[in-house]
Design a protein around this nucleic acid. Structure first.
Length: 583
RNA sequence: GGCCCCGUAGCUCAGCCGGAUAGAGCACCAGAUUCCUAAUCUGGGGGCCGCGUGUUCGAAUCACGCCGGGGUCACCA
């Protein structure tokens, strides 16, 4: 886009110009801080199209009262030919009404930009690494991973739409003890595939059936030569093979949700490259890591096997953590944290900002990793903004009753189950209709209801309705959307345009706050406005998109409808939800 | 006990980098469709924004302290 000046920004600039003029005239002191000046649509549409709090914010530095200053600002704004009224209201708000032509032009802007309408350059030149999902490669994706996956993916798309250069990254925890357990579990299934009777899966191994194909695959690839071999011979091979198979499984589960990562970073590879050692050396040199003994846990009875051991500790207490945190275990292996801080440094090498999406059950580890990243990145002269987004648990329900799951038996609800039952769009949209840090319920019975109770259908229906009308107009009347007679549109249509025109600022606000759910709520609002207008046509045929004997008005209304559909599509695209054309 | 998140209408939730009379859906009541998709729409009642103190022109929003709910407090991942 050559010109990214959106409608709202355009008027922000006009107000800023007036303020600069007042500053030149001495009404405002030189160098007045305009940071708190806001220009936004008023909450109550009857107040006008735009409102600014400039006079209230600036009255004090101007040594006058808000209403007097507001009058002065309003007096200058009204000179603008596109501003039809500038009224001072309440404690000193300035309410502006814009010429209808301004809004009608915005429809053309939507049409011209099409799929790019709402894109922003606010993130231009900024590389953001978003790490999400990062589920252990020990089994299929289950419900616990779902919300973070959707939120991380939608956030990535949102940031991209707002102009950031986004890397979607998945950290494969393929170096810890759990992948050894996976390898042993796979070996057992390998023996089973070779004809052994393995009986019950022993305690401590993964019981799920999803390892059976892995065992069969290993048996066919490797034959029986690891059947009686000692563990140290087969463990590394089985670990690598099983992890690879699990990652295939996870990728296909994610694909069902429409999620595709750009980078898969292996913890094992990170360790093999010596990254944790390098981080430790630097941290030691700068006094962030020392050898020490942790105190026994307070508050509760210490674990029975607790004993004091000297370990290399990171000084996270300097950053507000409860205690310093070990980066290595007593057996010399890296702790998760020890490897993770090196991993974050690796990500920071090719990013200007880092975002992690974690489950809320890891909230307790946020301080230490943020502290480590701060220490490392600032110490190395390149401070990297690092944000950890916590997503809360999802309680699965069915018709108001909690869904029971047993991890022991491997009987858990997988993402594949969910998507097969209710569909990708329902899963994604529902996960985005609540702010991530709030707990939510997901009721299988409710989310498939085809009603306004279900925002997915409500928004998709709005889009389908528009498409249906466009199809019908062409097929029955031969009318195509046209911007030739937009002046024929009335107040109701203008209200729709005004709402659609907010999309670019919604995108920027959501991107700035890193809250993709705002887009979902905005789309619901837009869909609601569309449905309302549509229903007017039921009793008043002059209010229809297709008006009999009035092809000019019909073409204009259809042009409006087409642009509303465009905005809905653009919003849904950010959320990763399909904009269906018929239902 | 420490730390993190949440507390807004009967229910599920928006709004929270301070702004005008606090919103939406569900549920409840009353209505709208011979005609563009009723999977929709219109109207109505319903609120100490958990409690208190502070900050200021102004607090659901910010700070502090309580209360209630959840999470978490391994050399796990």
């Amino acid at each position: 886009m050559s010109d990214t000046m959106t409608l709202y920004k355009n008027f922000e600039a006009k107000i800023a110009a007036v303020l600069a003029e007042l500053e030149a005239n001495g009404v405002l002191p030189e160098g007045t801080n305009l940071a708190n000046v806001a220009v936004e649509p008023p909450r109550d549409a009857s107040h006008g199209d735009l409102a600014t709090n400039a006079a209230m914010v600036l009255a004090k530095p101007a040594k006058t009262n808000p209403r007097a200053l507001a009058e002065a600002i309003a007096g200058k704004l009204i000179d603008d030919p596109t501003i039809t009224s500038a009224e001072v209201a309440g404690p000193g708000f300035i309410n502006l009404r814009l010429d209808a032509a301004v809004w009608l032009q915005e429809l053309g802007v939507i049409a011209d930009n099409a799929d790019a309408y709402g894109r922003s350059r606010m993130g231009e030149g900024m590389r953001v690494n978003v790490e999400y999902v990062s589920a252990n490669p020990t089994g299929p994706m289950h419900m616990g991973h779902c919300r973070g996956a959707v939120v991380g993916d939608a956030l990535s798309s949102l940031l991209e739409f707002a102009g950031h250069d986004v890397t979607r990254e998945y950290y494969i925890n393929d170096a810890g003890g759990q992948v050894d357990v996976l390898a042993r579990s796979a070996h057992l299934r390998y023996l089973e595939a070779l004809g052994d009777d393995i009986g019950e899966i022993p305690e401590g191994l993964y019981p799920g059936d999803y390892l059976k194909p892995v065992g069969a695959y290993l048996a066919s690839e490797l034959g029986d030569r690891f059947k009686a071999a000692p563990e140290e011979e087969w463990l590394p091979i089985f670990r690598a093979e099983a992890v690879a198979k699990m990652m295939d499984l996870i990728k296909s589960d994610l694909a069902m949700l429409g999620i595709h990562h750009d980078e898969f970073a292996s913890e094992a590879a990170l360790q093999a490259a010596g990254k944790p050692e390098a981080a430790e050396a630097w941290l030691r040199d700068h006094g962030f890591v020392y050898d020490g003994v942790l105190e026994a846990p307070k508050g509760k009875a210490p674990p029975e096997d607790w004993e004091p051991v000297e370990l290399p500790l990171f000084r996270s207490t300097q950053f507000g953590d409860d205690q310093d945190r070990p980066i290595k275990k007593s057996n010399g292996a890296w702790t998760y944290f020890g490897a993770d801080l090196a991993y974050h440094m690796q990500k920071a090498e090719s990013a200007d900002a880092l975002i992690d999406i974690w489950g809320a059950d890891h909230a307790g580890t946020v301080k230490r990793i943020k502290a480590a990243v701060a220490a490392l990145s600032e110490g190395q002269g390149k401070p990297v903004p690092f944000d950890v987004k916590l997503v809360q648990m999802v309680q699965l329900m069915r018709g108001g009753e909690p869904v029971k799951m047993s991890k022991r038996s491997g009987n858990f609800i997988t993402i594949a189950d969910m998507v097969e039952e209710v569909g990708k769009d329902v899963v994604r949209f529902t996960m985005l209709t609540r702010k991530p840090e709030a707990q939510m319920e997901f009721d299988f019975a409710k989310v498939v209801e085809a009603s306004k109770d279900n925002p997915v259908f409500y928004v998709q229906y709005a889009h389908a309705r528009i498409c249906s009308n466009l199809r019908k107009a062409l097929a029955d009347e031969g009318i195509t959307p046209s911007a030739a007679n937009l002046a024929a549109l009335g107040e109701e249509e203008l209200a729709l345009i005004k709402l659609a025109a907010q999309f670019p600022r919604e995108v920027e606000a959501a991107a700035k706050a890193r809250e993709p759910h705002r887009i979902a709520f905005y789309l619901y609002e837009l869909a609601s406005a569309l449905h309302s207008f549509y229903t007017l046509g039921r009793t008043d045929t002059d209010k229809r998109f297709i008006v009999a004997d009035n092809p000019e008005l019909s073409a204009a209304r259809l042009f409006l409808a087409a642009q509303l559909g465009q905005v809905i599509r653009n919003g849904l695209q950010i959320l990763g939800v399909d904009a269906v054309e018929e239902m």
